[in-house]
């Protein structure tokens, strides 16, 4: 089951700094468990961030990204109180969306 993200968004001068911490195993499919069998691949494929209804970040992720990924980025045009929505979809079809307001 997809677990909640931690999202922080702060207005800094003319831009918003967003920090997103995601709970995900990001299994590469290459690791072996203690029983010697391969642990199935399980990773986030896409992550999209919207400010209000406009996409400000669209990413394609893969197995090179570590467990519990952390993303930080900046964008212009945001205002205090504006809504930031983050959505990811993983290779098993699981998805999670969380929202925060810009501070």
């Amino acid at each position: 089951m997809a677990k909640p993200m931690r999202i922080r968004a702060k207005l800094k001068g003319d831009h918003v700094e967003a920090k997103i911490l995601i709970q995900h195993d990001m299994e590469t499919g290459l690791r072996k468990g203690s029983d010697g069998a391969k642990i199935p691949a399980h990773f986030i494929k896409t992550l999209t961030v919207k400010y209000e209804d406009k996409v400000v970040l669209d990413t394609v992720m893969g197995i090179a990204v570590s467990k519990d990924p952390f993303l930080s980025f900046k964008f212009k045009g945001g205002e205090k109180g504006g809504k930031l929505t983050v959505t990811w979809v993983d290779n098993s079809g699981d998805t999670r969306t969380d929202t925060t307001a810009v501070k």
Binding site: H15, Y51, K54, V55, V56, L57, D58, T59, M61, A64, V65, S66, P69, F70, L71, S72, F73, K74, F75, K76, G77, G78
Partner: peptide, 11 residues
Amino acid sequence: LIGQAILLALT
């Protein structure tokens, strides 16, 4: 809106 994205893919 300019999506200046700096992605920290911390491997």
